[in-house]
Design a protein around this nucleic acid. Sequence first.
RNA 1: GGCCCCGUCGUCUAGUGGCCUAGGAUAUCUGGUUCUCAUCCAGAAGAUCAGGGGUUCGAAUCCCCUCGGGGCUACCA
Length: 475
Amino acid sequence: MVRTRFAPSPTGEPHIGNIRTTIFEYLFARHENGKFILRIEDTDKSREVPGSKEKIIEGLKWLGLEWDEGPGVGGPFGPYIQSERLELYQKMAVKLVELGKAYYCFCSPKRLEEVRKAQAEKGEAPRYDQHCRDLSPEECQARLSKKEMAVIRLKVPEKGETSFDDIVRGKVTFQNSEIDDQVLLKSDGYPTYHLAVVVDDHAMEVNYVIRGEEWLSSTPKHILIYQAMGWKTPYYAHAPLILGSDRSKLSKRHGATSLTEYRDKGYLPEALINFLALLGWSPKENRDLFTKEELIKEFSLERIQKNPAIFDMDKLNWFNGQYIRKLDPEELSKRLQPFIPSDYDSELVKKVIPLVQDRMVTLKDFIPLTDFFFKYEIDYDKKLLLQKDRKGGETREALERVLEVIKKSAWKHEDLEKACRGLAEELKWKPGELFMTIRVALTGRTATPPLFETMLVLGKEMTVERLEEALVKLS
RNA sequence: GGCCCCGUCGUCUAGUGGCCUAGGAUAUCUGGUUCUCAUCCAGAAGAUCAGGGGUUCGAAUCCCCUCGGGGCUACCA
């Protein structure tokens, strides 16, 4: 059975690039009727950010990427939080030492620093000089019992090569001589990522490791650990990175990088999933709009792209607009709730929605598009009432006639429009001209939903009031 | 610097030796619909397939070199 996992480290906001890869992990697991696991990799105490674990969980829930095992839902291989599994890693690290595949290292950070500096000066690659690699077991025991600080390092073979068959990249080979003797267990008793990820993926029976390309060059270290332990290696699929507009790794300065930010900016989870799934992966079918279910049906690892993709906000906006338009108005009003003040009249909101559904790109657009429906006073420059070459006098006169005609008209779209068009003809105004003046009087702006729909939602009383207000402005 | 990965319209991509004088989407522009703004519809422009060599009757597709971009190079993930 296929088992994939998302293994975030709680060091900040859920990054949109990781989330894209997570979507791949999720879609693949679902496509294969496998399991999707969430595991928190909190092995670096110093970088941990309080609350970020909760944010990650909240973000996944919001996106609808439900996990089968992990925090909150449990599972047969728990706990799913690495800081609660320390003993396991320690045991495994010691076992590697006993197997002769790893060794204790007593070098101080200061010495390591000096070694690296010297290497840099000589133009050599910075790496551990294997100073402690051949310490005798007796000496190690002696120093350990004196409570000397130590780490456990991987004893990388000096010769040979390590290669693997990456599902998206094909065969990738590294010379063992190029691989550093990686620290596996830190002096504080915590594992490094490299140890923890292998131990847990094995323990949790994860057989498909799908992750970002930044991990490609550490994969041989992981394979070496699997081999040292005599464990079966998983299948690897390294997905391309997501880049910013300048082609460097997507970061803060390119705009929003956090999942929660997109939620707060009014993006729909279904739009985000659709958009992100198509960054670095493409379906066989030549179309863009896919529901989560359709993505699950279509997804395959083989169609993951090799080259990195640039995050294009314009296209996300297009997707979001598409999904907003598809929403049932009732549903849209639900989604809008976090974006409108709680004292807004919900009945009025429902009446306004159909007028702006085609005009919204994000949920956040609702307020700026419609605020004039919800307040009594509107503020605008009276010049907007004056159409090209029209004087104040004739405009006032026109508005007076509009008032008159509207008051007499039945409060129906058809009748209102007929009355106003008739009036325009009588006044020898182009309908558009007259409509624009009315529009400004009613809304304070020049771009709005269609005029008569707007009137109907505004109501007769408010319509009349605002027209009178405009007359005052013009006097 | 070293190692590894990558290179098709601005962007996301289709393409796995002939269907490619390279298709779709988005963005841009133009036109239509229209009371404005959008939506919607139609159309245009936009890629000498990074460049150069091969292989082949034939290459975006296979090989080599060059160039360019990216990732990694921590007791971070």
